[in-house]
Design a protein around this nucleic acid. Structure first.
Lengths: 227, 227
DNA sequence: CATTGTGAACAGTTTCACAGCC
DNA sequence: GGCTGTGAAACTGTTCACAATG
């Protein structure tokens, strides 16, 4: 299922597809927990997320037998197990590179902090921005990037620079010890195998929508004879 | 991919997986065309995108035999065919609902216009914003949404409202004739089958990264004894 | 007795290997 | 010779059906 997408095969014991759904299960389970519910069945999860109950059970079975037959899954252990599997049972300091419109919107984004993702260093190439503060953080020059990120032990970076700078900055990030890059440039990044890149390319998402629309519009079309 | 993901199965003659790669091929082919190249081989595309040449050939074969044996694929017809398949060989007017930080960043985002995606109506619930202009467009109240979108014949909407408003606004969008929703709220939307939703949930992407990082860190771990 | 956990059947996707063509 | 197009094989992921169980 889509989405952003991964460069270089993901990895880990869980298959890709399962992992992507873990995020959905987690979101849904957290919501139900917050609403005061205490258990959920595979059927309910399936309905809420547009999946089949069998798939939900198989997926959740992958982290261990945490369901109770006749009852369903208790939300608290479920949330804990999913967070553990996804690695979000801890805080994750992050770096931002590129303080444009998008970069600013990301730094101010509420949800991140709640999920334990917290910006702790912000960089931009533009000297006019360096020194300014945003959400209490001082914007630093990219020349400080490697040194600062390494010193802070930050492992996740958000890349929101113009396309030309994407690859050079990515290479610096790798040098700084970054292991995961959330890439908002529409550029494919070359990085070593142990660094994960998730690219969020808005054009990509819109193209999936437009395809859907045009293919719905002309339903029973055959391939052209030789096109 | 990364990315975003689909609620309700996509559809159309091309399999999901192929379609997602079409966006990548298109991006890469456009780039090469812009750099003055005129053909590309499956091998080159594969290398640039981290795929196998066989897969590239199979995928591109799905739109018709547009490669030349011994030569590769001519970029111009390739780009045209991919755009046609994705539905981006035309202009797509879009509506934005929710003019917060993120909404503003999206409206100002360059790339969209270049790809033929153009905001033509902007809505917000906040009366203090209604009437203001942003990138030459007047912000309108959500009460006008159904009427305005229907009149303008807009079929794609970008949803960037707070989570509580997500479902009600989505229902209005459906009523207004919208067929594709780019959903930036972390909420699962209930919509009819002929409406596509692509959700861009930043938490989702970060979770994929953190999973990658933690699963790399403790390499040869076995499943728990009965998990 | 509702609901999980799971092997076995099925569907979708990727890779292989090679014939066909420029 | 180099490269595409494509069936067949291998693989991965999904659904089914049902025994196991709190």
């Amino acid at each position: 299922m889509v989405s952003g997408r991964y460069q270089r095969g993901g990895m880990g014991r869980l298959p890709h597809a399962v992992l992507e759904r873990f995020s959905l299960y987690l979101r849904e389970a957290e919501g139900r927990l917050a609403r005061g519910e205490s258990t959920v069945s595979s059927q309910e999860l399936a309905r809420a997320l547009g999946l089949t109950p069998a798939q939900v059970r198989k997926d959740l079975g992958a982290v261990g037998p945490l369901g109770a037959r006749g009852v369903g899954y208790r939300l608290q252990p479920l949330v804990a197990a999913l967070r553990h599997a996804l690695g979000t049972d801890r805080r994750w300091p992050m770096a931002l590179v590129g303080v444009g419109q998008l970069g600013r919107a990301l730094v101010r984004h509420r949800g991140f902090r709640e999920q334990g993702f917290c910006f702790e260093a912000i960089f931009d190439r533009d000297p006019r921005l360096v020194g300014r503060r945003i959400e209490g953080l001082r914007i630093e020059g990219v020349d400080r990037l490697v040194e600062r990120i390494r010193a802070a032990g930050i492992r996740i970076a958000v890349l929101a620079v113009p396309p030309e700078q994407a690859q050079p900055v990515a290479s610096d990030l790798v040098r700084a010890g970054i292991k995961g890059i959330l890439n908002f440039t529409a550029t494919a990044l070359a990085v070593p195998d142990d660094v994960a890149v998730v690219s969020v390319d808005l054009g990509f998402f819109l193209e999936q929508l437009t395809h859907h629309i045009v293919s719905m519009a002309q339903p029973p079309r055959r391939e052209r004879d030789s096109a």
